[in-house]
Design a protein around this nucleic acid. Structure first.
Lengths: 361, 361
DNA sequence: CCTCTTCATCGAATCGATTCGATCGTCAAC
DNA sequence: GTTGACGATCGAATCGATTCGATGAAGAGG
């Protein structure tokens, strides 16, 4: 007669709640209540259970088992588009994540970073990792395959500036109106020849002038809205796309735009982010152009960048940390089974020293 | 007779593996095998199961349940000391994390960020969140309470430059030898009056000159070793502690050190990080001191900082991304049940334009 | 002395999968 | 026509907790 060996994973040797309960001469249910801090268990009993746990070296209920029973894990995922390194180099993304963790940490919930490396956003990661909710932090694609996966799995989703869908709670800022305000400011100063340095319209590493076809297929909500804001004031304007939201990309674009004869050079450059604006400023400096005397440069975000030094950039200030907190709160609400409203946060124009009257022709 | 209602969490309405199996007229075991991609299930059967799943809108096995059975979750935690925002502002921390995710992502494993807000490093987070392993990324305290928690829970731990313990796999660089090399370089150039701008010795927001008592109680391994490296060459040197590893802290410290008469001013400042060095450079510039003519400034890390512009900092280059990858690999090995060796990565002196001969007295 | 609360504790049914050995045909070889 | 081998599928035992209503004992009130 063959000895029937128990199947399954190798025993960990780690004590279980049942073992603790047995040692304390209570039922597992009572032990569970004790660890949950329920007031329904008598103090003396609780002490006995805790003592038994200490003797056995039991550190508390296994989070995985508890997760299964409860149906939640205490982990919320954040998608940060491209490679982590690039996301981290963007001060806005960093501040957003900070706002998110601030709220999450207060609830004992952890933040899992999901770096969707170009297109294939870690489908196997999503299939294997338990998540209570997901936040699209810096990559609001409506047709992101990850979105469908999450949906099928029943994981609630919060989108920061996209994607837009019925089942996605949207945390938004008024990119378009903000940029329009900024554009109006330039228009008031007399500027008529304006160019835009845009963040990537899609994640394909393209860089350079944007034609109508590409303009029509902008992938990112915020990028589209920031273009529209300028167009609201100036009508169609030349667009120069960058391959990523980074200072050197901004500088590269700036050189392309500014290293031309003065009579065709834009008198103002609208960068879609402060990071890109910092690059444009560097390009201007490199070309010997004075800001704002020869050219005005404006940005978006209102982050305080180390690159800028003492320069006060004219920009649109957005409440990035509030955005992060709102996203996290929405995620928590979703996990709790509520159906939170989307949020639209205000932005405001901050006039600095990088915008001035159009230079005399 | 009361109708006995099933206890437990409210039903999700989401289909289960069992439902799929029933619909495909196979046993749950076979269905499980099919989703695991086992070659032992006949192609026709697999197709039938997948079809049933599609009809039911089943997205694949529930990660939580699978985690319980398997005993692992596919999540690895990274402790990033202080508040997330500060960690993210440190280019070295960011690059380290990038290296970690690079390896983890390749295995379909997710990275969970654990920001231990000063002292109380989210104990409830640790108790609730399932983790396969933990990496102390930028906070190697030997007496960190989180370490005990993880230990009790049986979560294997990898330490990047600490903490040191039998059950912690250490990923290290030779801070001491590297700094000693740097110090020797300065010594060769004739410098004898050298001061150190140190990263925080402990996490208590202290800033200012370090006395013997505090010197004796350095909390962080890397900080201690980088002090010792300088002392190996110069003997005891004045230490100025910063409250955090940030440019403005470096500048503040730099001003304290350099805004004194030339005959008592250090001829060389050893900053413990490139970030701090950048601050010292700013301070020097602000005081009208030329580098390296009036004062030499050196750093540590070899990160390319946007603050530096074109300046080539003399520094010790450490392979930060390799460090991250090594840490992640060690964590993966631990999860697999192996007992990986610790790693000691090499560093190298890189002489730039910020160090020069001692100025003539 | 009996009944009604109240309080602490227990039973038992899940949560949703994974996994190992056993089983049941089927087919080839002898 | 057996016997073996092999391939596909199934049974059943977990993984480790949570939770709700039930239960029993003790104390209060009549």
């Amino acid at each position: 007669m063959p000895h029937r060996v128990a199947p399954g994973r190798p025993p960990t040797g780690r004590p279980t709640l049942a073992a603790v309960a047995a040692r304390a001469r209570v039922s597992p249910s009572t032990a569970s209540l004790a660890f949950a801090g329920s007031p329904r268990v008598a103090p003396a009993t609780r002490d006995r259970i805790l003592a038994a746990a200490a003797e056995l070296g039991y550190a508390g209920p296994d989070p995985i088992a508890a997760s299964l029973r409860r149906g939640r894990t205490g982990v919320i995922g954040a998608f940060v588009g491209e490679r982590l390194l690039y996301a981290f180099r963007d001060p806005v993304a960093v501040q957003l994540l900070d706002g998110i963790t601030e709220v999450l940490g207060g609830h004992g919930v952890g933040l899992l970073l999901l770096a969707g490396d170009a297109g294939r956003p870690a489908a196997d990661q999503l299939a294997r990792i338990p998540l209570d909710a997901a936040i699209f932090a810096t990559c609001g694609l409506e047709d992101d395959p990850a979105l469908d996966l999450l949906r099928a799995r029943g994981v609630p989703v919060v989108g920061v500036e996209g994607p837009v869908a019925d089942d996605v709670v949207l945390i938004d800022i008024d990119d378009r109106a903000g940029t329009a305000q900024l554009a109006a400011h330039l228009h008031d100063l007399g500027h008529r020849r304006v160019a835009v340095v845009a963040m990537p319209l899609r994640l394909d590493g393209t860089r350079g002038p944007v034609d109508a076809a590409r303009r029509a297929r902008v992938h990112y909500r915020d990028v589209r809205h920031r273009i529209e804001g300028v167009e609201d004031v100036f009508g169609p304007v030349p667009l120069l796309e960058t391959a990523s939201n980074a200072v050197d990309e901004g500088e590269q674009a700036g050189r392309v735009l500014l290293d031309v004869p003065a009579d065709v050079r834009p008198t103002a450059v609208v960068a879609q982010s402060d990071v890109l604006a910092a690059g444009v400023l560097q390009a201007a400096a490199g070309l010997g152009l004075r800001v704002p005397d020869d050219v005005s440069v404006v940005g978006f975000d209102g982050a305080d960048l180390p690159w800028l030094g003492a320069v006060q950039l004219t920009t649109v200030v957005q409440p990035t940390d509030a955005k992060g907190r709102a996203a996290a709160r929405a995620a928590m609400a979703l996990v709790a089974g509520e159906r939170p409203e989307g949020v639209l946060l205000p932005v405001s124009l901050r006039v600095g020293t990088t915008s001035g009257p159009v230079p005399a022709a």
